[in-house]
Structures are given as C-alpha cells and as structure tokens.
Amino acid sequence: MIHTLEADGIQLSFGTRRILGDVYMKCETGKITGLLGRNGQGKTCLMNIILGSLKSSISSIRFDGEVTRKVNTRPDLLLYLPQFNFIPKELTVKQVLEDFQLAAADLNSRFPEFEGRHDLKVKELSGGQWRTIELYIVVKTPSLFAMLDEPFTHLNPIQIENIKQFLLEEKANKGFLITDHMYNHLLDISDTVYLLKDGRTHPAKTLEELEQLGYVNLP
C-alpha cells in the first residue's frame, strides 16, 4: 500500500516578510522527493511546519488524506534529520543503536567503517561518520516517512555515493523528503523535485527546468 504525506496551503510570515505563501507538496512511500531552494527560501521552515515544531498561520498536513497535528510526537509517521548534529555527543554508537532498537550487525554490513567502533562515543567519530550514523538511524528506524535536511553535509564524495545508494535501497521501506544544496546528487536520486522560490513550490526535474526557474546557471 502506498502512503501519502501532503503539505497543503502552507503560509508563513515573519513580521511583514512573507516566507511561504500557499505551498503545496506531496510525498509518497517508495519515492524520494527532493526539495531545492536558495538560502532563506524557507526549506527548513517548511520541514519544521510539517513536523509541527513551527506554527504557521495556515497549514494542512495530511497523512493518507487525514489531517494530522503534532507530527513531532509521532515517530511512527515521520522521522527528522535536522541539518545539525543531534545525537547527544556523550552517547556511544552502541547506545544509539540500542535506543533505536537497530541491530549492530546491520550497521556493520552496510557501513563497514563502523566495525569495532561501537564502543566509541559519537563525539569521537569523524564528522562524516557522525553524520552517517545519524542518517542511518533516521533511515532505518521504522516509520512511514523521513525528512532529511542537508544529509550530504560533512560527507566526502565516496560517503555521498554510498549514502545515495543506501537511500535508493531504503526507499522501498518509506518515503523520503530531502533537501540539500548539492542539487546534482539530489536530482540523481529523486523521483520528484520541487523548487522553493518566492514562497511557492515549483515542480522541476531537470537541470534545464531549474535554470529556467533561476536556480542554477548552466554553462
């Protein structure tokens, strides 16, 4: 069964400055939805509104057509990877996996660089490994959807390719909404792409469309 997450009619203003005006977007399980936009266009705000941690003047978040509020208390529906590190730095990799009830062997088989490092505290990992373990728990923990805010930050090119492959494999288990400035990687793996511009979402899939919308300058 395909599940849907819809964000509809989202409006957000800070004082007199309108950030989002009548935004609509739809995600489905089994698909990766990309969200692009320049800095300050409201990508993270949109994710926080969907999550329920940021209030907007008008919004409707629907799961399978049913309006759902306070999604941030429903990890079975939606998990969130913020753009900054969120795992308490004093925890070990083992404790993190136990908290999320994930098997250590699965992590080792998917990311062999963690072999023998489960007793290390998260703060003792490299920036790339720290980001990888955060991605891993959000992607692997059962839920209908996951929102990933700048998942490729802190990762080297090999790690990025590995994560892209991982996301393509895991999209069979949930739907993803991903935003990142590395648009080439996002275009590679996304089934649907929205560009957030002037407070509205514009469907776009190719580089040419992104150029027409003024997001990129092609040579």
Partner: peptide
C-alpha cells in the same frame, strides 16, 4: 544548550 539534542528524543517519541 541542548536544543539540538531534543530532536534525538523527538525521533524516539519523547517530546
């Protein structure tokens, strides 16, 4: 000081 870590607990279902 721990507002970033709150997302950890949130992803585990604790607001």
């Amino acid at each position: 000081y721990k507002k970033q870590e709150l997302y950890y607990y949130q992803n585990l279902g604790i607001s």
